[in-house]
Design a binder for these strands. Structure first.
Lengths: 201, 201
DNA sequence: GGCAAACCGTAACAAATGTTACATCAGGCG
DNA sequence: CGCCTGATGTAACATTTGTTACGGTTTGCC
């Protein structure tokens, strides 16, 4: 399908080999905006490719605490980091933000496919490594940083905070707590606030 | 080398293909107990195989906060999750606990090798996926769980806490804080304490 | 213009965790 | 036996973050 060719993973491979891959049991699934695409604990036995739409991934704790982990925007893979684990269940809840289209590609067929297409294998390994870096950075952020430090990291990565409520979700804090910390940092001269939001100074 | 054959990754591959892999530029490095093996920010451009000894991985924050992330015991790979990232630096500090031996295997040679040895490729993908699960579980623990919940998870995974100080390092808390929480949980009947330590009841 | 909804800053209080200090206890070793 | 060391429990206080509530501002819509 043409949809699949848009993704970086399949960029450097021929049409016929891609068609051979899709001869194996595959599934194309559509989700309307707002629908839940994955629940924590769902198994992922297929390579999931988001070819259309946007979604978000959240992690949830026992006590109702919740963190917005990632913003997913087509074209990209969903949960590639867990695909080949023995007990592979997704740890996040994925919700469609817009209408979405997801391809499910048989895991074993994809494994064979990678062996025949070195560039695909290479790209897949790069994607997995990027996810590893992403996850370890997130873990470090939450494990050893105070909210103030997380704000600094956020500003280093994103430039500015335009929505306090949205930033609070990603930083794992409540909106009033983040608002208070931002005010303190402004009065200490660490950051500035203007019409567009907060940023480093 | 016989040392390398002990590792799961190379379990199912022939001697001669392994020898071919080692014809590429490789390096065998020894570390004495207590020595630093990796610093945060060090690049990892080679597959690192811990073939002898034990080590520990720590993450450190700006304010001196610190978490013991992982206990590394030969035979296993070091930082496999970052190997193929474009800007691949390790996020942790790795220190030898005993005398250690580490093999550095050329990344590109290993990439070629995996293409010729499907079982090695498969095992490597499984290892990466396990690391993904490990990292996302850690991240979730620190992002959305209170110390009490982290204690529960720790007990579910490890059975008991025999050393409060050691558990505190892994749980990202100070020893007195963990001690207090454990006391509270005992008095609430959630856990019990005997001569061997704390455990669920 | 007026109204409603969303977002924001802020304050007062509560809960969780860190900090520091000290007393206790067990085990090893003279 | 007595001492020393390390790990532990605990208390008092400080800091960080959550909770709840309220008022203000903006924005879009009628």
């Amino acid at each position: 399908m043409e949809e699949l060719k848009r993704i970086k993973l399949f960029a450097g491979c021929s049409d016929e080999s891609l068609e051979r891959l899709l001869e194996n049991p595959c599934r194309r699934q559509e989700y309307s905006a707002g629908r839940r695409m994955l629940n924590p604990g769902d198994p992922c036995r297929a390579l999931m490719v988001l070819v259309e739409g946007q979604a978000e991934a959240r992690m949830m704790g026992e006590e109702g605490r919740e963190v917005l982990v990632d913003h997913l925007k087509a074209p990209m893979l969903l949960a590639p980091a867990f695909l080949f684990a023995n007990n592979n269940v997704v740890p996040v809840e994925v919700t469609a933000l817009t209408d979405c289209v997801v391809w499910h590609i048989n895991r074993e067929a994809f494994f064979e496919f990678m062996q025949q297409e070195p560039t695909v294998l290479r790209t897949f390994l790069e994607i997995l490594s990027e996810r590893g870096r992403f996850l370890s950075r997130k873990m470090r952020t939450f494990a050893v940083n105070s909210l103030r430090n997380r704000v600094i990291e956020y500003l280093d990565a994103n430039g500015s905070i335009t929505s306090v409520a949205a930033a609070a979700e990603q930083l794992g804090a409540t909106r009033p707590s983040l608002s208070r910390v931002l005010s303190e940092m402004v009065s200490e001269g660490l950051i500035t606030k203007d019409g567009k939001g907060y940023k480093k100074c």
